[in-house]
């Protein structure tokens, strides 16, 4: 890797890592796992830097990779045998500023969690979420609709309107 290339990569990493790790954190619910997944995604970005660096927003590539890894991780964790999960539960960190929201999000299916994090935290439009998750816009709307209904029930809040 040339010095200029490394400098560009470092710039992208410094400006994008925290944001990506935070999105992953909202999906997986664990700080350590979030940092690992974000780190793996940025390592993949580094391995493919010669081609991805030409993109308009290379960090968007890493974000997409990280979100998909997070969804797969949650899916795998949920598919672990129930007895095993009971033996090693992953409780929500009580020191979080809003542990109730974290607990409620943890009850959602993997794709719903990702859609919620990208919509409410990253404030991304449905079309962009669909591209990141590689599903249709109507699928994203369905995920958000179901997630909102469930979260409203869990949190005791009201549902007003619908997603745009």
């Amino acid at each position: 890797m040339q010095r200029d290339e490394q400098r560009d990569y470092e710039w992208v990493y410094r400006n994008g890592f925290t944001s990506v790790a935070r999105t992953v954190f909202l999906i997986v619910g664990s700080r350590a796992v979030a940092e690992e997944i974000a780190q793996d995604a940025f390592l993949k970005l580094l391995q493919k830097w010669s081609s991805v660096s030409d993109y308009e927003r290379p960090e968007a590539w890493a974000r997409k990779v990280a979100v998909r890894m997070a969804v797969r991780y949650v899916g795998r964790e949920r598919s672990r045998p129930q007895r095993e999960r009971r033996a090693q539960p992953a409780p929500v960190d009580p020191t979080l500023p809003d542990p109730d929201v974290a607990r409620a999000v943890a009850t959602l299916a993997p794709m719903q969690r990702a859609a919620v994090a990208l919509y409410y935290w990253e404030d991304r439009p449905v079309l962009e979420i669909a591209r990141i998750l590689q599903v249709s816009e109507s699928t994203v709307k369905q995920h958000l609709h179901r997630a909102r209904a469930r979260l409203a029930q869990t949190l005791g809040e009201e549902v007003t309107g619908d997603v745009r």
Partner: peptide
């Protein structure tokens, strides 16, 4: 509000 505050704790 909850997700923003939780995310920023990382």
């Amino acid at each position: 509000s909850g997700l923003v505050r939780n995310a920023r704790s990382l």
